[in-house]
Structures are given as structure tokens and as C-alpha cells.
Design a protein around this nucleic acid. Structure first.
Lengths: 142, 142
DNA sequence: ATACCACCTCAAGTCGACTTTAGGTCAAGC
DNA sequence: GCTTGACCTAAAGTCGACTTGAGGTGGTAT
């Protein structure tokens, strides 16, 4: 299939596909003249990449997790990433509970509500870079 | 307290605090000459901001959720954000399970493993922008 | 009085992940 | 034979969230 079809079925713009290829995250199986040709399984690889991005991994991290062709992988690394996700899941869960409580709580200021304040201590050390995909615009193709 | 102390206790560089103030996420209570003065509760507001960032919200979103001074809030918005988090938590959970499975699975290629492939269908429509903080560098102050 | 330190402002730079733009190739249809 | 549409490349631009740099202020210690 050529890039237009991959784009349509994956929902990703062609420019992104070229970019991913350049970064080594996907591969085109060859060329028809100057046009890239892709195998159908690139669709699944792209799904995997999307999933990883959505989970907050950088393209580089994803690249490390799933190398080139058949997904020969570093099991140790995967387990580490799974542990990171576990931690993150706990944080998000607290945050979600905190938000639900804040929406219901009647304390004059949330900073005075003990339940809410407890949430703050989860924050503490967890400083880090970059943020995550909770933006809701899903299928936008210019 | 002045900015150096806020920086030390919050773990955030002074430049970030100035930036947050400029964006209206925090407020300095006044000036001592040219130096900003902060109330101690700014520490908790910063914890809240960090938590939100960590959960993947943008500074603008955080700004909407918790307005200025006493955290007078839009309850409806908070509930929506909580729902977003719920969705995200489910995705991360699937991803985590997928990673654990991938690390253990013996299928020649993961794309051939049905358990793994099931994971891919979670991806599907969930395309969005920007990614998340699973980078582990916590306290780095240049 | 001068050095130092912790702050200040404003502008520009950085980073990741893309997107946009400008100009070019090529097969198919009129 | 020329236009059209789908592709191509390389380089530059964008966006959010900061960081860095250059040059300045003001209070305290020597």
C-alpha cells in the first residue's frame, strides 16, 4: 500500500508517517519509483506507537521498546516501563479522586479541606518533564 | 517568603515560578523593593500544579480548573477532567498489561500473539497530541 | 566605596513532535 | 503534449513549557 492508504487507515497524516520512518519507528518495504510502499502490518505498528504515545512515552522510548522489524524486544526494559505505568496509574487515580472530591466538597477553600490536602502530598517529589495527551481532538486532518 | 525559598521548598526553579506567575497560575503577594514576596500557601498551589501537570493537563487547563486565589472552581469542569482521567487510567492499565505480557510471551513476533493484538485495538481512535511525564529525572536544578 | 549576592526584566533560545512550504517527479487522463 | 493528482525532499516554522543570557537593582558585609 502506498502512503495515502496508510494515512487513511491509520488516521495519521502522511507527513507524520514520513517523520516516523525517518526516526526509524516504521519502515517502508520499498519504493515504486519515488513512492514509498508499506506492508500492511505497518498499521499495527502504528497502532502500537499511538498507544505508547498515548501512555506518555516519547518516540525514542517507543523506539527502544520495539525495535525495527518483528518486534524483538528488551524484556527487562518492558517490565520497567510497566512499573512506570503502575506508578503513573496510581497518581492519576489519586488525582481523579481528588477532582471528584473537589467537585463535591463544600469546604470554603479546597486548601482547607483535609481530604483535598492529602492529595497534595502525592505530588511532592513527582516533578518531571513533559505532559500528556488528554486533549480530546482525535481525528483532525487539517 | 521570597522566590529563593519558594524555589527551594517547591523544588521548582525560580524561572519557572516567574513564568507561572506571568501565566497567572500563582500570585506573589507583593514586593519588597523589586523582589517578589510569596505567601506560604503558594507551596500548596504549586503542589497542585505539579500534580496536574503530572496527570497530563496543560498549564492552561490547570488554570481553568483552579482559578486564582481561593480555588473557586468550576465543578462541572472538574468532573469532566475526572472522566478524562478515568479513560486514561484504563488505557494505561491496558498498556501496562500489554507490556507485562509482551515481556513474558514467547510468541515469535508479538504481532502474532492474539493477547498482544487485542491490546492494539484499544489504540484505534485514540489519537491525540502531546505526551506525558514518565521521565524519571525528578529533582534537577541545573 | 566597593564587592557580592539574590533578586529583577526582557528577549531569545531549546526541546520534542510534528506541520508547512517551496519546488520537483511521474503515471494517467483529456 | 499538457494538466492533474498523488507522491517526493529539504528546510523552515510552530507550539507549549520552560531555560538561558545580558544587563540592571538594592541591601548587606568588608
Amino acid at each position: 500500500m502506498d502512503i495515502g492508504e496508510v494515512s487513511k487507515t491509520s488516521g495519521l497524516p502522511a507527513s507524520t508517517l514520513r517523520y516516523y520512518e525517518e526516526k526509524g519507528l516504521i519502515r517502508s518495504s520499498g519504493r515504486n519509483g519515488l513512492r514509498r510502499l508499506f506492508n500492511t502490518d505497518v498499521i499495527e505498528q502504528l497502532a502500537l506507537i499511538s498507544l505508547g504515545r498515548n501512555a506518555g512515552f516519547s518516540l525514542d522510548e517507543i523506539g527502544e521498546m520495539f525495535t525495527d522489524d518483528g518486534l524483538e524486544i528488551n524484556r527487562q526494559l518492558l517490565l520497567e516501563k510497566a512499573d512506570e505505568l503502575d506508578k503513573k496509574i496510581k497518581e492519576l487515580t489519586s488525582m481523579r479522586n481528588g477532582l471528584r472530591h473537589a467537585a463535591a466538597c463544600s469546604a470554603p477553600s479546597h486548601l482547607e479541606c483535609p481530604k483535598f490536602r492529602r492529595l497534595l502530598h502525592i505530588a511532592g517529589k513527582n516533578r518531571s518533564r513533559k505532559s500528556s495527551s488528554l486533549t480530546k481532538n482525535a481525528g483532525k486532518q487539517r
